[in-house]
Amino acid sequence: MTQARAQPKPAEQAGPKPAQIDRNGVLILIRSTLLALDQANKTGNYTVLRDLGAPAFQVNTAARLAEIFAKQRSDNLDLSGVAAIDPQLSLLPQIEPNGLMRMSGFFPSVPSQVNFDLAFAPVNGQWRLFGLSVALGQAAPVAPAPQPLVAPPPAAAPAPAPVARKATPERKPAQPASPRH
């Protein structure tokens, strides 16, 4: 008996590839996303952050985003410095096999740095927010290794709905790395 199997498309076989985006485009995406989060945290109004996202990100209600970022809000986390400081990228913008553009890095500052992991989906010729993770960490010359933000879906299953992730303090390097929540 013979069985037919669907062959993966070339894009599914290949790993991530560098994104075709210039430095200014990268800075705009990072800064606008983190400033939108900062303003949402300061006002308690997450509708603009939600509405700036891709349709798959918009499955998060403004109330759900408020829950996710409640700790940052209660800690009065101030992300406004991202407007003036240049980010250091630990993961250059790349297109994942699932079509998302992902980048990770940090904004150095003393005594802590702002670590970020962002994913964007292409929507009508524009990159729109798909997922984000933001956390404070210790100032260091290099960012911690990025953890998976969104897992690519299995070949036959639909993609899971993206969600924003809570900020959690970075673990000390001596401890085993674990995904951020």
Rank of each mutant, 00 (worst) to 15 (best):
P144F: 05
F57Y: 09
P173R: 07
A156G: 13
L92N: 13
T2I: 15
P122H: 09
S178I: 14
Q126S: 10
D22F: 04
N124M: 11
V110C: 05
K9D: 15
V48S: 12
A177Y: 09
P146E: 06
N60W: 02
R171E: 12
A11V: 12
A143I: 01
A14I: 10
L132F: 01
N115P: 02
P154T: 06
P173W: 04
F106N: 03
N45R: 14
A84Q: 11
I68R: 09
A54N: 03
P160Y: 10
A156H: 11
R102N: 14
L100A: 09
G99Y: 05
A83E: 05
S74V: 06
Q72W: 09
T61W: 07
Q147T: 12
E12G: 11
A156K: 14
L52S: 10
N45W: 03
G53A: 11
F107R: 00
R23G: 04
A54Q: 03
A159M: 13
P8W: 12
P153I: 05
K9G: 09
H181A: 15
F120H: 00
R165L: 15
Y46T: 04
S32Y: 02
Q113I: 02
P55W: 04
T43R: 11
T168K: 06
V82N: 00
L37H: 05
D38R: 01
A63W: 09
I21S: 00
A157F: 10
Q147K: 10
L136E: 02
A66M: 11
N115K: 07
G125Y: 11
P152F: 06
L29K: 00
G125P: 05
A155P: 06
T47I: 09
A135E: 00
Q20I: 08
V110Y: 11
Q39V: 10
Q20A: 13
L34N: 00
A19I: 07
G44W: 08
N98P: 06
V150Q: 10
A157M: 12
S32M: 04
N24E: 13
P152N: 10
N124T: 08
K172T: 15
S112K: 06
K166V: 08
Q13D: 14
N45D: 15
F120A: 01
I28L: 09
S90Y: 07
L79A: 01
D117C: 05
G44K: 12
V114I: 14
N124L: 13
F116C: 01
S133A: 14
E170H: 10
E12M: 12
N76Q: 15
R165D: 04
R171S: 13
P122D: 09
A167R: 00
A159V: 07
A36Q: 04
D78V: 01
L49V: 03
P55R: 08
L118G: 00
E96D: 13
P108Y: 04
S178L: 15
F69T: 07
G131T: 03
V142R: 13
A83S: 07
N24V: 12
P97A: 08
P87T: 02
T61C: 08
P169S: 06
N98Q: 15
R102S: 09
D22H: 02
R180W: 07
R31V: 01
F120W: 02
R73P: 01
P179Y: 10
V114C: 03
T61D: 06
Q88M: 14
L65K: 05
S80P: 08
P173K: 09
A36P: 03
